[in-house]
């Protein structure tokens, strides 16, 4: 039935851009995302920013919602997913508001989803064919996480912390209900794989962050790792839904 629908109309795509205090980059990211493919829609989720993010979005006429309290990246992205679900989008994407995800490479993710029949696609900095722009600490952390995910699910995920992603409506239906509040990216990868969704990766080239600081830096990487590993164990032992 879905095949018939595809012939009848192009898939409706929503690009969700979570933004917390990204006044310098968010408008440019949103515009780039809108221009990345014909017919895509954008929703910026302002996670109760304290800077001018909301004002800029309103002034530029960019489609956005503003959360009344700061929920963190997980809650913000899920808000966008709830929106996509209600509005009937076929594909929902996540592109971070800090400008490190290249909206120009959105079509690569969509193409992989279509051609390989995937439910979820991760834009990977480390998959074969991508050029690496990252510190050794983060690569090591990512590698460890990847190994853990492989252990938990049997599938190789080269860049589990990448937030540059695309999900189809099948995955969206699941994620709108179950979206981890903290460290969502690696958790989702495992959660989806464990629940039988098809997940794949596409090599991409990420830019250095344009503005603001990464949420994962320096010594925090270790703490992040410990917390994520704990969260992964929780996902692994939790009842399937």
């Amino acid at each position: 039935m879905s095949a018939t629908l595809e012939i009848m109309r192009a898939p409706r795509i929503l690009i969700v851009i979570p933004a917390y205090n990204e006044e310098k980059s968010v408008a440019a990211v949103a515009r780039e995302a809108l221009a990345s493919a014909p017919g895509v829609e954008v929703l910026v989720v302002d996670d109760c920013s304290t800077d001018r993010t909301a004002a800029i979005l309103a002034a530029e006429g960019i489609n956005h919602v503003s959360l009344p309290v700061n929920l963190g990246i997980g809650g913000a992205v899920q808000t966008g997913f709830l929106y996509a679900w209600e509005k009937g989008h076929d594909i929902v994407m996540q592109v971070d508001g800090d400008g490190q995800h290249p909206p120009a490479q959105i079509p690569q993710l969509l193409q992989a989803m279509r051609e390989e029949g995937l439910d979820a696609v991760i834009g990977s900095r480390y998959a074969a064919g991508s050029q690496i722009v990252s510190s050794w600490a983060r690569r090591l952390g990512g590698g460890l996480l990847g190994a853990l995910i492989r252990l938990a699910t049997g599938q190789r995920v080269t860049d589990p912390t990448s937030g540059f992603r695309a999900y189809n409506r099948h995955a969206l239906e699941y994620l709108r209900r179950h979206y981890p509040q903290e460290y969502p990216e690696p958790i989702i990868a495992i959660d989806l794989l464990r629940n039988g969704f098809r997940l794949g990766e596409v090599p991409i080239l990420m830019k250095e962050r344009e503005h603001g600081a990464s949420s994962i830096t320096g010594l925090d990487t270790l703490l992040y790792m410990i917390k994520v590993i704990f969260a992964i164990i929780i996902v692994k032992i939790r009842r399937r839904r």
């Binding site: 989720v45 956005h64 919602v65 503003s66 959360l67 009344p68 309290v69 929920l71 809650g75 899920q78 808000t79 709830l82 929106y83 209600e86 509040q181």
Partner: peptide, 13 residues
């Protein structure tokens, strides 16, 4: 609280 905040943001929109 998360659910309420999300609903509120979407409704306001």
């Amino acid at each position: 609280i998360k659910k309420l905040a999300q609903e509120l943001a979407l409704l306001r929109h």
